[in-house]
Write a protein that binds this DNA or RNA. Structure first.
Lengths: 170, 170
DNA sequence: ATTGACAGTTCAAATTTAGAACTATAGTAA
DNA sequence: TTACTATAGTTCTAAATTTGAACTGTCAAT
């Protein structure tokens, strides 16, 4: 599959995966949320090869998740800052951390605790319904095709995208 | 990096990524939440190669996210069902979808709408604080090392060294 | 006897990633 | 002057992963 195709699919999950859905990118974003901003910081914190790091940062900038900001002239140097679009990834990060906290702990306990500045307490993130405020459970959610669904409906798939490309090519 | 190492890192985000943090795995899980359960269904919905699909399913089973259940004797056939551990990934999926809905829509609108069975309304997922119930924002969350944190947190970076020098100089 | 459905496995070729070295600019130390 | 350090990359080859396509084995139906 060409991964760029993901961003065109009629599926918000696929499109998001197209932007941030690879392992290094997710780890880079972790560092961003931990206030790291510079090339060398990312590289030494993650042990990622410089080649891939440069490539991934470029893609995140291209997708508006990070902004490349000059912080010094001569020699010109840049750092990478989360945009609002990037900050909006926070619920995804929290959800990933929470699953790990719930299912992947060893005997030592949580590597990281989260404090909510607003209320001052250590907390867990909880996903709730925007309408009634109740916690969400998979079995209480029903999906319906929306206006952006594929006309011929079923579920949006990569295979369909490939078929559309092939059809155009033919 | 050896990706297996991720699961041992003192970071819940890294451990979660170690289990579900690659693109095909996330797409397979999307299909699971859309009620797909069989090898052929996954394969034709995603266009993933059979080789990789088999490999990823094995890994998800090994990690307790899916359960391989026989649904027919002679010939013996199996399907893949989300375990509780797997169902607990729902907030991650919803968070990914929501970011796509917010930032990756085209003019046609949302591919998928979500209805909350409990209250009957179409909704968006909202991440709130388990303690005060208020919506969470990245800038209102402070992280502290927990009991499972690495004792000496990584190598001091070159940047750290520079900052220490700067601090002494000031 | 042949075909089709299903859940995989196998293998060569193409793509991606790892690891290491190299480039460029400037400040600091000997 | 020469050398070394810091930062943000780029370039190259070797190793690993992914793709694409074919193949296997079991059973039911025609």
């Amino acid at each position: 599959m060409k991964w760029d195709a993901l961003e065109e699919e009629p599926c918000s999950l696929a499109r998001t995966i197209g932007v941030i859905g690879d392992r290094w990118t997710l780890l880079i974003l972790r560092e961003c949320f931990l206030r790291k901003r510079r090339f060398e910081q990312f590289q030494s914190a993650l042990g990622i090869t410089r080649h891939l790091l440069a490539e991934r940062l470029k893609k995140l900038v291209r997708n508006g998740v990070l902004r490349r900001v000059s912080y010094q002239e001569s020699p010109k140097r840049y750092e990478y800052i989360l945009t609002q679009r990037g900050l909006d990834l926070h619920p995804i990060m929290m959800a990933l951390v929470h699953w790990g906290d719930t299912h992947m702990l060893d005997e030592r306990g949580r590597p990281l605790l989260h404090e909510h500045k607003t209320c001052g307490k250590l907390f867990d993130p909880v996903m709730v319904c925007s309408e009634c405020g109740e916690p969400l459970f998979a079995k209480e959610v029903i999906t319906h095709p929306g206006p952006g669904a594929r006309p011929t409906d079923g579920q949006p798939t990569a295979q369909d995208a490939k078929e559309r490309r092939d059809a155009r090519a033919a």
